[in-house]
Computed example of a mutant assay.
Amino acid sequence: MKIEQYIVDAFAERIFEGNPAVICVLERWLPDELMQKIASENNLSETAFLVPTEDTYGLRWFTPNGEIDLCGHATMAATYVVTTYLDTGKTDIAFSTRSGRLTAISKGGIFYIELPAFCLTPVPPPASIVKAIGVEPVETFMGRDMLCVLPSAEDVKAVSPDLNEIASYDGLLFHITAKGEECDCVSRTFAPKCGVPEDAVCGSGHCHIVPYWSGKLRKAELTARQASPRGGTLHCRYANDKVILGGRCVLFSEAVIRL
């Protein structure tokens, strides 16, 4: 068996920027165990699997440690692969996923994906939060993930996290954010439970971050910057409990898996 595989940098203007995702194009679903082995072998934050159907593409996302329900940057990378290699000329894409039907469009070299927003519940910060990130949050929320709002953008950039401590917290991922200086907000994402110390640019994380800052800044449209070592810029819109994320994609490599 041969499987076409693409590595795409999402939310990137050039290679080695943004967040890399592996997109594997299948004729039909493989056994879950085999897809997990492929994801673990690739050892990037996400390996996504695409299966063409009549009017949509089936899409599933795997971290090195397991399958997850939603991933933004791999959905954007999948949109790039569909419009560039599988169905050239197509500008509107629908994906069938564990988070329901997701839609994406390609417009002028920018890819836009629409994702469900997570409801945020205020919670007390964990007792060990200062040990974990070195600073006391201004506010803490729980959605699918934990979101900590820090006093400043410099605080976000300076964090050197205790990943073992973070792995003990509730939620799947752990996000820190603050008001931006040259953009609306900055953030970083840590995912030790998924085998990913720091996610370079996290789309699903912005399904927490964008609703928060949209309400705080009273703006529907935001420019967000993920302040990871690779970095990435997201053009965001929040409306009707949906988060629309826009960004560019760059192909890093294409290969064939032989099974």
Rank of each mutant, 00 (worst) to 15 (best):
E4L: 08
Q5K: 14
F16V: 11
P20W: 08
V22Y: 02
I23C: 05
C24I: 03
V25F: 03
L26S: 11
E27T: 12
E27F: 10
R28F: 12
R28G: 12
P31W: 06
L34C: 01
N42I: 06
N42A: 13
E46K: 01
E46F: 07
T53A: 12
E54G: 14
D55R: 13
L59S: 03
W61A: 00
F62E: 04
T63E: 01
N65P: 07
G66C: 07
M76S: 01
T79Y: 05
V81C: 08
T83R: 00
T84R: 15
T84Q: 12
D92W: 06
G100F: 04
S106E: 15
S106K: 14
I110P: 11
P122S: 15
V123N: 02
P124S: 15
I129N: 01
A132S: 13
A132C: 12
A132W: 04
E136S: 15
M142A: 14
D145M: 07
A153H: 10
A153V: 06
E154S: 14
E154C: 10
K157T: 12
K157C: 14
S160R: 14
S160L: 13
E165G: 13
D170P: 14
L172G: 07
L173P: 09
I176L: 02
A178N: 01
G180A: 11
G180N: 07
C183H: 00
D184W: 06
C185V: 14
S187H: 03
S187L: 11
R188W: 02
D199R: 05
V201M: 09
C207D: 06
C207Y: 05
I209H: 10
P211S: 00
Y212C: 09
W213H: 10
W213V: 00
W213F: 00
W213Y: 09
S214V: 05
K216Q: 09
E221K: 13
R225F: 15
S228K: 08
G232K: 04
C236F: 00
N240R: 03
K242S: 09
V243L: 02
I244R: 09
C249D: 02
F252I: 05
E254F: 08
V256Y: 10
I257E: 05
